[in-house]
Design a binder for these strands. Structure first.
Lengths: 126, 126
DNA sequence: ATATACCTTGAAGTTTACTCTAAGTCAATA
DNA sequence: TATTGACTTAGAGTAAACTTCAAGGTATAT
């Protein structure tokens, strides 16, 4: 079992964010100690790893919450989760390709600016 | 010269968003017709292309506004803009690599779920 | 000429994802 | 035992990027 502080260190999320995610049903049902403090299990840590994967590939918290709900429903939602993840994967790939295309344009601009700068400094030194 | 409607079609931005970007100094100084309607020049269109590149690679509107301000100041800001774009480029590449790593984990999960689903359906058919 | 559709402005409202505050509880240490 | 620091909650506040609204002006087709 991990304290909220330990989970912060492992996930990079703040305690505020962890409590927020709990409220938003991304990871509800975190158990409490006798004193009412959060205790995260290894299973919770795995769920958090998944949550971070989905979040860092651009899924909204709402969609993550729905995915985690399906996960809690067990094996009968395996197909649905599989399809959902596959669709997400394709959307992310498309997004990355789009980003690459825009980045290529930025790279062109950098090259163009570099050349223009060279000319500009040459003129100035004359 | 293009009307706001034409610019929407070409850029995929809404008229609301174009007016918002003007207010936020991403592209101020758009000229007006006699009746007060916006008229976008070819130069404005080029600026908008740059704005979209930066936005779609994840730059904040605030940072874009600063970049566009430098652009309006002319050639003496070439070096600064060059460096700024280069830094942005590297940040985007790092972000894309990070995304790729998270996506690889998602792919692993999809494979794992697919296998688990196969087993599950096999058991059910028995 | 008038109806309709589109444009203008400033300002208020929305969504997402936090982030902070206040008031109080719990745990560990001097 | 007292104090320090971390934890709890509900709820308010924030920042970014739109998005909508209200009130009015403009352009054009009938």
């Amino acid at each position: 079992m991990y304290t909220i502080h330990e989970v912060c260190e492992r996930t990079g999320l703040t305690a505020h964010t962890l409590r927020y995610y709990e409220k938003e049903k991304l990871l509800p049902n975190v158990s409490r100690s006798a004193g009412g403090f959060r205790q995260y299990s290894d299973e919770d840590m795995e769920s958090l790893a998944m949550i971070c994967c989905l979040k860092n590939t651009g899924m909204s918290l709402q969609d993550i919450a729905r995915f985690m709900e399906l996960a809690r429903e067990g094996d009968q939602t395996l197909r649905e989760r599989c399809e959902l993840l596959e669709r997400h994967r394709e959307a992310v790939l498309a997004r990355m390709e789009e980003m690459q295309r825009y980045l290529d344009k930025v790279t062109c601009k950098v090259d163009y600016f570099t050349e223009k700068l060279r000319e500009f400094e040459e003129n100035r030194s004359k």
